[in-house]
Computed example of a mutant assay.
Amino acid sequence: MRDTEKVYSPPRTRLARWLAEPGADVPEPIRLALIANLYGTLPIFVGGVANTILVAAVIAARLPTPPILAWLVMEVAVCLSRLAVLVVADRAARAGRPTPTDLNLMLAVAWAGCLGYGTFVSLVSGDWVAATLACLSSAAMVGGTCFRNFSAPRLTGVMIALTLGPCCLGAALSGEPLLAVTFVQIPFYLLAMTKAAYRLNGLLVATMRAERENAALALHDGLTGLANRAGLNAAFERHGHRAPGLLYLDLDGFKAINDTHGHAMGDRLLRSVAERIAEAAGSEAVAARIGGDEFVVLCPGRARGALIDLGERLIARIAAPHPIGPDGQALAVGASVGIATAPEHGTGLAALMRAADSALYRAKSLGKGRCSVASRKAAESVSEGPPEAERMSA
């Protein structure tokens, strides 16, 4: 996999977008990852261009005719331009700036055209050593093109056509009847390699989808779709530097609903509660279900007053009837909220959760349906163990 810190820009022009199109219904994150694959790595690029420049130089030394020399000049110019684009794009991607993706795609097409031109002028030169070298080089590069650029099958097909297509024209003008076989061989080769590129592209997209789905399952609660404990930990690692506040919620009366209406209805209620928590918390907050009827909301950069307002709003939203019954029956459940803030109640997630859980226990002991902020004393005693155990035994 590529360096996830580097993000390459999608193509902007119509032609570049057409060339880079990976297929229908491909999510945007996967499209960006496929664009990154088209840039390749510097060692692979250097190996490829070194071969084509060497072949062009050897043939130019053997046949220093204007068409052959022009091929060598074009080959060097295009390869140096591609190298410069790769370096610039790598630096821009690391810095979060736009990358020259359109230019990178156009230069890839130009490089394929140079190979095709070189093969053509070598074939019509009448020198079969030069023709053999050029054809071998083109064939080798076509294989590399297919397996390096299958992130964009259309680009692969165009590059193969430009690389090998001129062989047919060169064969027609070479004066050798046996070379007419290329009119059958090359179209079938082009079709087979392009089809292989599409197949590899489909496998790659399917694999990337599966990776993302597995990652999502690992970080999200299967019932509600909110973050789970692992997802909450990951979110805290991303946002912990922004002095986050943390709300710890526990439903009041949920066990009675489960016992009376069954677990299926209880699951529906939990999903309804989760939707209301996510809506009230907003897009910048991270809502998580950490087990049973317990929820946590991580709020980066919110002041104490804003956290209290959110806690009271959550209590009111959750307490409103939930029309989840089979006949529109509405169920009611309450919620209590404990609040902790960083750095007042700790700087780590575990410390904040213990302090918020202590405040939640106090809110429940005062009559439930309340919002309570952790005290300084709670922050100083969090190392003694989570009061969750005390609440469970109460």
Rank of each mutant, 00 (worst) to 15 (best):
P326D: 15
C299V: 12
N258T: 05
T347N: 08
A342I: 09
G291W: 08
P326L: 15
R271P: 00
I290E: 10
A264D: 13
V286W: 03
L349Y: 06
G325Y: 15
Q329Y: 14
P244A: 03
L310G: 06
P244V: 05
R313S: 15
A351Y: 01
G311E: 03
L307P: 06
D252N: 10
H345Y: 00
H345W: 01
Y248C: 14
A285Y: 04
M353F: 00
E344F: 00
L246I: 09
D252L: 02
A235T: 13
Q329H: 15
G292R: 10
Q329T: 15
R302T: 14
A359D: 05
A235G: 04
P244R: 00
L349H: 00
A342N: 02
G346H: 04
A340W: 01
G338A: 07
A350C: 07
R242H: 11
G305M: 07
L249I: 11
E237L: 14
L249W: 05
P343I: 11
H345N: 07
L310M: 15
I339W: 01
D250A: 07
A320I: 13
H239V: 14
D250Y: 06
V273G: 10
P244Y: 01
V273P: 08
L331A: 09
R304S: 14
H241T: 13
L269Q: 09
I277A: 05
R271H: 02
C299G: 09
F295I: 03
P321R: 01
G245Q: 00
L269R: 04
R242W: 06
P326I: 15
L352S: 04
D252C: 08
L352M: 04
F295T: 05
A234T: 13
P326T: 15
A356I: 08
E344S: 12
A256C: 06
A303I: 13
V333S: 05
F295Y: 07
G338Q: 04
E275P: 01
D259C: 11
A274S: 10
E344K: 07
R276V: 10
P321C: 01
Q329P: 13
I339D: 10
Y248R: 10
G328D: 12
Q329S: 15
D327S: 15
